[in-house]
Nucleic acid binder design. Sequence first.
RNA 1: GGGGAGAUUCCCGAGUGGCCAAAGGGGGCAGACUGUAAAUCUGUUGGCGUUCGCCUUCGUAGGUUCGAAUCCUACUCUCCCCA
Length: 412
Amino acid sequence: MRDGLEVLEERGFVKQCTDLEALRNRLHTEEVTFYCGFDPTHSSLHAGHLIPLFAMAHLARAGHRAIALVGGGTARIGDPSGKTEMRQMLSVEEIKSNAQSIREQISRFIDFKKGKAILEDNAKWLANLNYIDFLRDIGRHFSVNRMLSYETYKARLETGLTFIEFNYQLLQAYDFLVLFKKYGCRLQIGGDDQWGNIVAGMDLIRRVEGEEAYGLTFPLVTRADGKKMGKTEEGALFLNSNFTTAYEFYQYWRNVPDQDVERFLLLYTFLPVEEIGKLGKLKDKEINFAKEKLAFEITKIVHGEEKANNAREAAKAAFDRSQAEGNRSAIPYVTVSGTALSEGISAIELFTKTPLCSSNSEARRLINQGGAYINEKKITDINERIDSSWLEDDELLLRAGKKRYFRVIVEV
RNA sequence: GGGGAGAUUCCCGAGUGGCCAAAGGGGGCAGACUGUAAAUCUGUUGGCGUUCGCCUUCGUAGGUUCGAAUCCUACUCUCCCCA
């Protein structure tokens, strides 16, 4: 039987482990309860959370019990690990509502309904902690000298670290301990920036309970072109379509650098390793097929099959010349009134109505530089006016540059 | 608590009375080349109208001056050293 760890190893999920062989042995012989934390600092998870989500799913598929821990308590503090500045404080209400929407997103990867996987919120035990008790029971096990030596705090030591943030590690370690006591949770997984926090929890369990626990971290995923993983011009690549539409999401993965395709297929899809191996061997133009596969698969998992199909269709309609008539319905749009259009609207105004251009100057610049198209007709005149005669199927397809599309639909 | 340094346009970072919408780099956007890659080269990069222009911006609030990012005063914040 595959123990889950093998799957993670062959797909490139493993960066560091506290005791690889001991963990392997345990995963092989028994059902292990493991956890991964998610801080509700935004109402949607983003691309960076995909690695932990997939890792949890792989382990759960191998028969282990997953706990997704929403950090409703720790989010009130903010983890300083790897951050250069203190995180903005969120209100308790915000955190609660964020936690709610994040739960739904996690359940796309882990099925909580069957009663096996568990969803927890550390606000339950952190919110009403007694400070004195906490210091006596937990605080005594932590050495400040040792904490200061951690790499994660180094950067912050340069610029300033507040006491509240310095406590984050204790709380996360305490989470691990609580989950161990409550569920027998023996493994914590997380990004490599969590290493210090994870090890701290493992140590705490050993000191307090005299039991073995393990930690496993994932590599920090980077892109071959040096761009930040999961970052778009607008910001983070969110999993919620209110922030990043399925089409935009699809396009992000469709445009990943060549060198990253195989690695990303392993990390961000459930496709069999053998199949990915074949896809990864494709060269030149052929690699585009693998990119489409990657984009489709991950969009399907995050947004569902229907939206993934629409996104793919829309992309084909926009980019594939041989398929002039595709289904563009997934391309984001804005509406404009029919009367306004019959009177004529300047091309500049049309572009600024969409996120394609944020100001008239920008639209003007776009036209001047020859990057503005409406229904694939290049706009060369700054003063070009668009009226109803331009309509095709009651809509206009605006394009900025080579690959940014947006639709304008007439409202009757 | 005492002493010192600093806050510049998306980021880093020049600029110390007019020639500053503000050098340079990064990033972004666009063009060429392509495969909706990468690399490279070119252009562009506060807003509004567009020859000329006008408005907003150099931590915040006042002041000096014909004129300030640049000088003065107060305030806020950050960093460093000492206690």
